[in-house]
């Protein structure tokens, strides 16, 4: 983000963004369990809309991308493309054990790996699948992160000194070298 974080327009943008984040869900090769739990979040029992969180079909309208599942070889390029379509500032939540580390699918011949091998992830949710309340908690935690990022002027502050294991992703180059 550019500009003075304390300016009126910036504060207005922060307020609007944090009050009503739009979420898009992408199934990168999950078993559906996380997906149905995410849909369950939208339903009367958990009702995520009371926080202003709205599920959207198009990534171009989204602020937060929730990725479910280990990334399959066929979905890797699609995931990257969806991620590229989301306008900045974008946040990625990897949902469930598979999204975080491959889960039971780690090492299978048609699986590239966890979500982090393809796109940069801001938050991981544990569980197989995580309960809807945990997913809501993750989205709300992601909003706090977003607020902090906007105040700090970007995501750079979160990078620890000497932290080089996750390279900054440049679109189109990430998953190219993935081999079996």
């Amino acid at each position: 983000m550019t500009g003075d974080p304390q300016s009126l327009s910036q504060r207005l943008a922060t307020w609007a963004r944090v009050k009503s984040p739009w979420v898009t869900v992408f199934n990168s090769g999950a078993c559906n369990a996380c997906d149905i739990e995410i849909i369950a979040c939208l339903m009367p029992r958990f009702d995520v809309e009371r926080f202003g969180i709205l599920a959207k079909g198009s990534p171009r309208h989204a602020d937060i991308l929730i990725v479910t599942g280990a990334v399959t070889r066929k979905q890797a390029s699609r995931l990257l493309r969806v991620w590229e379509q989301i306008p900045e500032p974008k946040y990625v939540i990897a949902c469930g054990a598979c999204g975080a580390g491959g889960g039971v699918f780690q090492g299978l011949y048609h699986v590239v790996g966890d979500v982090g091998t393809v796109i940069p992830v801001d938050m991981y949710v544990a569980g197989c699948p995580p309960r809807p309340d945990e997913i809501i908690n993750a989205v709300v935690a992601c909003l706090n992160l977003m607020k902090e990022d906007l105040a700090q002027g970007g995501k750079e502050w979160r990078r620890k000194a000497g932290d080089t294991d996750r390279k900054e992703t440049t679109p189109g180059t990430v998953a190219k070298d993935v081999r079996v």
Binding site: G29, G69, T72, K74, Q75, R78, F105, G107, L108
Partner: peptide, 11 residues
Amino acid sequence: LSYNHRGIEKA
């Protein structure tokens, strides 16, 4: 359809 093919039968 095969976006979710993971290779479970081999595993």
